[in-house]
Design a protein around this nucleic acid. Structure first.
Lengths: 187, 187
DNA sequence: TCGCACATGTAACGTGTTACATGATTCA
DNA sequence: TGAATCATGTAACACGTTACATGTGCGA
């Protein structure tokens, strides 16, 4: 059932929740704890963000919920992805990535990759890292060009700040090139 | 005149604008072009963000404006920081940085450092990079610990995504340690 | 004449932040 | 008795995103 009735796409937070629910069905409270303890893309664990997001996912029919009333201080509402939710999530995972994604939304790309296990398709992960490495290399070169364009009288700190960005992207590119080998031997 | 009447602190975008205005008085249109062309922390150049932000800064009396009516297709509104604006901006630059800033707001820290030339105080820049290097080292260790805690049956992709973060923070730490030498020879 | 660069702005909308509300159970 | 943990939620607010509105002058 794929008649996406002009619904706007899920938020980053919504995707993150959807991904965690693929790991195992959980309650809002559980999910909050995950965000609070792990360094998961540093999302907020505030109830004012999580609970409304879960409700949105439910009205979009991407997740379903059932009350776990048995043995609990207060009844827990446990969410799990619906088939539609799974499909939408997988579609997000395999979306084409653009240069713009690398520059503006690198965090989101990492979030996507972290959930690539849902696909269980090494070829897809390889492809992802391959194009990511390519785009990172390109973007790094772009930043380096910008650095060379810097007027000599420009303040040191600005130049150094740009260097920091370059170094970080270089590190990410190295990581991507190295990591893709986990998914394909040759080439 | 420092009676900050419980005003909430400026946004990241507002700080960025304030910083650019310290470089030279500019109009909203000029500022938009800066955001559009340079890789300045990848802020948005949308008019719906810039113009309201400038207006907010003006009502807070952190910037002043004057109309440049002479020889222009349409009159330009040129903004420049007020003494109060300068003070607030400098205060932001020299704010103490915490572990949380490193984990959640690294971009903002880089933005701050990029504008450190406003202070014209090498000692302050050294101090900034020194503590930044320290905090980055600490946070990297924390991530490494988290990585070791990873259960062996956890998916490869999740572990690799964490590795990406670690590598990026490591690169940033190296950068900070190396760059601080620009501001102090010994030690 | 068509469209683009200049230049400023507003309106609707959604979402995250912060703070608050509720209420049961366990432990000191 | 009081505090902490479990567990869900709402309300006000501010901000950014997107899209639209407006109008001039210049070059093809």
């Amino acid at each position: 059932m794929f008649h996406t009735m002009n619904q706007r796409p899920p938020t980053r937070l919504e995707y993150a929740l959807l991904g965690l629910l693929h790991q195992q069905p959980q309650s809002g409270y559980d999910l909050r704890k995950v965000f609070a303890t792990t360094a998961l893309g540093n999302y907020s664990s505030s109830p004012g963000a999580i609970y409304p997001a879960l409700k949105r996912l439910e009205t979009k029919a991407l997740v379903g919920s059932e009350i776990d009333d048995a043995r609990a201080l207060r009844p827990r509402k446990v969410y799990r992805p619906t088939p539609d939710g799974s499909a939408v999530f997988r579609a997000w995972l395999v979306q084409d990535i653009s240069t713009d994604d690398v520059a503006r939304g690198f965090d989101e790309l990492m979030l996507r990759f972290a959930f690539h296990w849902v696909l269980d398709a090494p070829a897809a992960s390889y492809e992802f890292l391959h194009t990511l490495a390519d785009l990172l290399g390109r973007y790094t070169k772009e930043l380096e060009a910008q650095r060379r364009m810097f007027p000599p009288e420009a303040p040191v700190q600005s130049r150094l700040a740009l260097d920091a960005g370059i170094e970080q992207y270089r590190a990410a590119a190295r990581w991507a090139r190295k990591s893709r080998k986990h998914f394909k031997e040759d080439t």
